[in-house]
Each structure stands twice: as structure tokens, then as C-alpha cells.
């Protein structure tokens, strides 16, 4: 049987990877979107692991809500990326620098 801590470590590693992806990524906005998604999945892993080991259904219910919201979030994110591409013909993160001060 896999212990709770293994799941939590997996969640923490995924979460750390996605934060690193957001902070270090200088190339593509799509990658940012993937990192955001990965972050929410890391949280979901945590919730499911806890729900299973605590024998409590509430955590699993929460995961459904998080998944639904994540889908809506991605839809809005992709729409904005299309907007950025139309206005600038690029989706480079490095090109997003006109707002400064």
C-alpha cells in the first residue's frame, strides 16, 4: 500500500515544478497555461489523498469543483491568448513588456 506521505510528496513536487515553470518560463504563454493547470492538479492530488486516508468524502467533492473551475479558467486563458496573438502576432512571454513603471 502506498503511504499518504508518498502522495503528498508527489503533490508537492508537481506544485513546485509548476511554480518553477511559471517563474522561469520566458518563451511561450501556452506553457504558462499548462503550468497553471498542473498546479491545480497537484492540489487535487493532495485533496484526493487526504480524502482517501481520512475516509471523508468532502475532499473528493471539492476536487470536482476545482476541475470544473479549472476548465472555465483554461477557456478564458485561451481566449486571452488568441487576443494577444491577434494584436501582436506573437505569444512570447518576453514580448509582454509594454507595461512597466
Amino acid at each position: 500500500m502506498i503511504s499518504l506521505s508518498s502522495y503528498l510528496i508527489l503533490g508537492a513536487v508537481l506544485f513546485g515544478l509548476s511554480i518553477a515553470g511559471i517563474v522561469l518560463n520566458r518563451r511561450n504563454i501556452i506553457t504558462l497555461l499548462m503550468c497553471v493547470e498542473l498546479m491545480l492538479l497537484a492540489v487535487n492530488t493532495n485533496f484526493i489523498a487526504f480524502a482517501h486516508y481520512l475516509n471523508d468524502i468532502a475532499g473528493e467533492v471539492f476536487v470536482f469543483f476545482i476541475l470544473t473551475v479549472a476548465a472555465a479558467e483554461t477557456a478564458i486563458g485561451l481566449a486571452i491568448i488568441v487576443l494577444v496573438y491577434r494584436n501582436r502576432n506573437t505569444i512570447d512571454v518576453a514580448a509582454l513588456d509594454s507595461l512597466k513603471g
Binding site: G77, I80, L83, V84, R88, L96, S98
Partner: peptide, 11 residues
């Protein structure tokens, strides 16, 4: 383009 950039940052 500026509004789109602001939106992606807020997002």
C-alpha cells in the same frame, strides 16, 4: 495590445 497584456498578467 496593452489591454490583452494586462489581461494575461491578471489571469
Amino acid at each position: 495590445g496593452i489591454a490583452a497584456e494586462a489581461a494575461i498578467k491578471l489571469f
